[in-house]
Design a protein around this nucleic acid. Structure first.
Lengths: 216, 216
DNA sequence: ACCTGAACACCGTTCAAGT
DNA sequence: ACCTGAACACCGTTCAAGT
């Protein structure tokens, strides 16, 4: 009966509903503002209720990431293996950017969840289909995987005006005598720091390297 | 006078001493257990004292990372550009593993600190020295940089026995029908997931790709 | 100047209890 | 079963005060 008073909470609580609320909170407020208490509030529920469905904050976060992974669209099977991998990896970056959780992900956690394994299966399948040995395919996928996640975590998507100003200040304060190449690169323009074609350049280099160094 | 009672705290407090204490704490207890209050306790000082030297926890963390970056040994100038880059990047991975902070690093923070820029300067210098254009060198360095940081953040250094057991369980629970390639790779052995030669494989592929795709 | 305790507004999680 | 408030042991940071 008292359920009537609880907005959208008429439907039963499930792991899935909680994970979805967690993911929405993540998308809206980011990882820093994410907390069990806030997820619970979003669901009009006591904070402790969540612990009946997830053993810890980390576990809930993993479930949210898993849910996000399900959003990764797998590439159509046409085209060269390079085109297919490019499409898959670019789509992974898109989702990683949409839900800024790359920073939380631990190596052995959500990477092995069923959602994340969809992309791994797709990637391995493309590589093996192209003639890669099992072992090379594993290593090649790890490389591609490391690259997308690293790019998502360590390259800013776009700079705000305040960030751009601060960056300019820092670069201007640099010692051109001690750091000549850095200074030259900085002078050449800070937009190279964030440009999304930087992602494409690295990806192309990796694909070319794989072609040269594997059994493909 | 009261200073006499404070263990190692005779010397004056400075940004450097605080950053060193922070880094030591990071190394000993990891990022999760890192807190302003604990750093302060380590220095036998009130927590609020630190705010006279750093504006926030993030700023102190940045300074600690900067200090760690200074530990990266730059490669000797002999050898091919590939050998030099391999040596530099491998050394970066070593330091990133010694101080498990890769996960905290934000794209626009410590990457621009003077300590971190030492490695960037060295990397750009090797690339330009090898005949790379300014622009290609920037992009190539970003790729290498993304790879080391991504590898440090997303590949476990080594698995504990408990982790190995859990991994095995998860892999055994996988659906070989839906994920045939993942299952095959898993059967081939989980040690490929952590093997440090995975780092070498990726690095070699990247170097080969750079050779193929830049003005080098 | 340099340092500080108390206080504020939060955390994740345990526990014993409610329905 | 499913949910919960109170409590514990923490956080980062502001503030007004101490020397």
């Amino acid at each position: 009966m008292y359920d009537m008073a609880r907005g959208a909470t008429m439907t039963k609580l499930t792991q899935g509903r909680i994970a979805a609320a967690a993911l929405a909170l993540l998308e809206r407020d980011g990882l820093d503002r994410f907390s069990m208490r806030r997820v619970a509030a979003e669901l009009d529920v006591g904070a402790m209720t969540l612990y009946g469905y997830f053993r810890s904050k980390d576990e809930l976060l993993d479930a949210a990431v898993d849910l996000a992974s399900a959003e990764i669209a797998l590439p159509p099977s046409g085209g060269t293996w390079q085109e297919q991998l490019r499409s898959l990896v670019t789509e992974m970056l898109r989702v990683l950017r949409a839900y800024p959780v790359a920073h939380h992900i631990r190596a052995r956690g959500p990477m092995l969840s069923s959602g994340a394994l969809r992309s791994t299966e797709a990637g391995l399948s493309i590589l093996v289909g192209a003639g890669c040995s099992q072992e090379d395919a594993s290593k090649a996928w790890r490389l591609l995987f490391t690259y997308v996640f690293g790019f998502a975590a360590f390259t800013p998507a776009e700079l705000s005006d305040a960030e751009r100003r601060e960056l300019k200040l820092r670069l201007a304060g640099m010692d051109a005598t001690e750091l000549p190449h850095v200074a030259a690169a900085a002078a050449a323009g800070a937009e190279a720091m964030t440009g999304s074609d930087a992602f494409g350049f690295g990806l192309d280099a990796i694909l070319a390297g794989l072609e040269a160094r594997t059994s493909i």
